[in-house]
């Protein structure tokens, strides 16, 4: 094993330009950086569980789906009950607005 390593070092040796490998930026990018962690510390899910950031989009999508559907269904039920016709679109709009507000409140506010 050690012989193999020696030869590898020997192979690397004649290249003098390379020794400054850019290790710092990659580490920096992975951890979000000093400033990044400072920025993200306002909401704790970003720092404690860094992988959650990728799935926020999917959660936002499920909020956006359930908002209009639920409130349009409520509007439909009220329409059937009160014999009116305008509550479905109102529920649709209100649900959409509510879900966008919730997403803004949960994920958007710094």
């Amino acid at each position: 094993m050690s012989g193999v390593r020696m030869s590898q070092q020997h192979d690397d040796a004649p290249r003098p330009v390379e020794p400054k490998k850019p290790t710092e930026p990659s580490k920096y990018a992975q951890s979000g950086g000093l400033f990044g962690t400072f920025l993200a510390s306002s909401s704790d899910w970003k720092t404690e569980r860094p992988g959650m950031t990728e799935s926020v989009g999917v959660s936002a999508l499920s909020y956006l789906l359930s908002g209009p559907v639920v409130f349009a269904l409520i509007g439909y039920g009220l329409d059937r009950w009160l014999h009116t016709g305008f509550l479905v679109p109102i529920g649709l709009l209100a649900g959409m607005a509510l879900s966008i507000y919730l997403i803004w409140f949960r994920y958007g506010a710094e």
Partner: peptide, 29 residues
């Protein structure tokens, strides 16, 4: 600018939600 990730992400998610809302409007309608 990797250090701006947290801030950019909030903005990106907001924009995503607003754009996706139109698609879901279409689906529901």
């Amino acid at each position: 600018q990797p250090e701006a990730r947290g801030m950019l992400q909030s903005i990106a998610i907001l924009g995503f939600a607003l754009a996706e809302a139109l698609a879901i409007f279409g689906l529901v309608l």
